[in-house]
Write a protein that binds this DNA or RNA. Structure first.
Length: 584
DNA sequence: AGCACGCCGACT
DNA sequence: GTCGGCGTGCTC
């Protein structure tokens, strides 16, 4: 017998080994096999009857039985192809820790999906969605897998669902035990992060992704694909019931749900806060608190409630101080970055460089102002204005807590009497086509977090922005409509796909630039591909980045066109990375 | 001739 | 991802 094994190596191919007599292997088992003289752990993907001579033998069995069914091997192969990664590295990143020394474990073969099972997909929104998930999974007869964006969230959900934890914070022995128990049908609900994506819950199962719009669902490293995409594909393969949950779904998800006829379940309940927009146009300000926000802090704390003030991580971008217009790239639609020293504006995407105009093209105003306030400035202002209140950047029990959107999660539902978004424009001005989506997500999440009768104060020079209007009226479609129109017109996801190619290393970054230019040449002039000019990033331009826009088949196109370059992508000191569907 | 470095392919 | 083989070119 011959076993074909894939390893954590770049490249497509598998390696064939002789199965020692008396040993039974199945696809989905990990084994150690000699590779370049040393035993290495890989995954068996096929076992076939053959008599090939001159092959090395499997050295050792790592998993006594397969840890995943064949359908999960296919899922991992699909994910690898979609992310321009290898089958082996994707698969090995998705399997639980190997068995410990103890040895004897109850094992069962993971169940294959039944061909008859039909997939269904649902998008769940509204403040009651999480309680509903707890109810439905509690009442469901079948098994469930819940994927959270990070370990902390996974641990919270595990507690809430009384489910078994399968995230990286759980001890290795426990993770393995949970995995095996799931395969035996002993664990009804399994909760984890992306490392649990292949957990062998018996199909057809309920497959849920919580906070599906969270960028943490796609951190660096394998598998190099958004957890949501892997779960959607898994549901198609296994025929399970797919649930995507979010306060504010990603625009891609919203579009897909409509295009593919998914069920939208709006679990809206309860009151909605009064949304106050504090228009900061034309106001000369030397401190970050407008009158409406000052009043909200005063009244809320007087009523014994707490206030959260949300700030961006860094102040960014430049806008007209009079009308609030953002200076945008006419080709890419992204806000232009301000190079203060040269008094120039530059586009982070296409590299367009132009002088800072004398006057605002919209209102002829002649003052431009930076868009944000950092947390230090905000904290100092609050302390000066309210010397008797407890103010903190870390303690969510303080009367006024200042931080990023994390403080909302930390505060817990219904704990906040008011939320103030100090500078929405800093979010809107980020040089990223998802800036509007992020702003909308933050506002919606903040509105859901405010307790009944509370207030959401938004300081912005764009009170008419669709994200603000949609939250004010509690109408999601008022945001997604214009947002998707923008994406379609300028060719952003979900209508087109992006791929980011970065090179680093080499003396002084010259080699990196040469490598990237080699990639650019290979992709140039191909129908339906747009190749943006290479841009240096990082300190002293040590990295060079190339963005490519293309159709849904972009991974296949890139794989074919860059086959030669990718084959030699890793040279001693320089590295080329290909990232499909980058999230930032 | 002897060695260093970098390029390139190979890994069963 | 990593290792080693081999060609180029420099040095003793």
């Amino acid at each position: 017998m011959i076993a074909d094994v894939v390893f954590d190596l770049p490249g497509e191919r598998s390696f064939s080994y002789l199965v020692p007599p008396g040993l039974t292997l199945r696809p989905g088992q990990r084994v150690a096999a000699p590779l370049r003289g040393r035993p290495r752990v890989g995954v068996v993907v096929e076992v076939r009857e053959s008599q090939a001579a001159g092959l090395a033998s499997i050295a050792r069995v790592v998993d006594p039985v397969p840890l995943v069914p064949a359908s999960s091997l296919a899922l991992a192969r699909w994910a690898a192809a979609e992310s321009l990664s290898s089958w082996g590295s994707t698969l090995l990143a998705l399997l639980p820790p190997p068995p410990g020394a103890s040895g004897a474990e109850p094992m069962a073969l993971p169940a294959e999906p039944r061909a008859s099972a039909k997939p269904t997909a649902e998008l769940w929104v509204g403040a009651g969605r999480e309680a509903r998930l707890v109810d439905e999974l509690g009442a469901a007869r079948g098994s469930a897998l819940v994927i959270a964006p990070d370990r902390e969230t996974a641990a919270r959900w595990a507690a809430r669902l009384d489910g078994a934890r399968l995230d990286g914070d759980a001890p290795a022995a426990e993770r393995r035990a949970v995995w095996l128990a799931a395969a035996r049908g002993r664990t009804r609900t399994v909760v984890g992060t992306r490392s649990a994506l292949l957990a062998p819950v018996p199909p057809p199962a309920t497959l849920a992704v919580v906070d599906e719009a969270d960028a943490a669902h796609k951190p660096p490293g394998h598998p190099r694909l958004h957890s949501r995409e892997i779960m959607v594909e898994r549901a198609w393969i296994e025929g399970g019931r797919l649930l995507l949950l979010a306060a504010a779904p990603a625009a891609e998800t919203w579009w897909r749900a409509r295009a593919e006829g998914w069920t939208l379940r709006d679990h809206t309940l309860g009151p909605w806060p009064e949304v106050v927009t504090a228009d900061t146009r034309g106001i000369l300000r030397n401190h970050p608190l407008t009158l409406p926000l000052t009043r909200a802090i005063e009244e809320t704390t007087r009523g014994g409630r707490r206030v959260a003030l949300l700030v961006g991580r860094r102040p960014a971008g430049l806008g007209c101080a009079e009308c609030g217009a953002l200076l945008r790239c006419p080709d890419c639609g992204l806000p232009l970055g301000h190079q203060r020293a040269r008094a120039m504006l530059s586009c982070a995407l296409c590299g367009r460089l132009e002088p800072l105009p004398d006057r605002c093209p919209g209102c002829r105003g002649h003052r431009f102002a930076s868009l944000g306030w950092d947390a230090d400035r905000v904290e100092a202002s609050v302390r000066r204005r309210f010397p008797r209140l407890s103010v903190s950047r870390t303690d969510v029990r303080a009367q006024v807590v200042i931080g990023t959107s994390r403080v909302i999660r930390a505060a817990g539902p219904g704990e906040l009497g008011a939320v103030g978004v100090v500078a929405l424009d800093a979010l809107l001005g980020a040089p990223d086509f998802r800036a509007g989506e992020r702003a909308f997500g933050l506002l919606w999440t903040a509105a859901e977090a405010v307790r009944p009768g509370g207030r959401l104060v938004v300081q912005t020079r764009h009170p008419e922005h669709e994200a603000v209007r949609a939250v004010t009226r509690r109408q999601r479609a008022a945001f997604y409509g214009p947002e998707l129109a923008f994406r379609e017109e300028l060719g952003y996801p979900p209508f087109r796909r992006l791929c980011r190619i970065t090179a680093r290393g080499g003396a002084g970054g010259g080699a990196a630039r040469a490598l990237v230019q080699e990639c650019a040449r290979a992709l140039e002039g191909i129908a339906d591909l747009k190749v943006y000019p290479p841009a240096a990033t990082g300190l002293a331009g040590a990295r060079v980045r190339l963005l490519v826009k293309g159709p849904a088949t972009l991974p296949r196109l890139i794989r074919e066109l860059l086959a030669d370059v990718l084959a030699k992508r890793r040279r001693a000191d320089r590295v080329v990375e290909v990232e499909m569907d980058p999230v930032s």
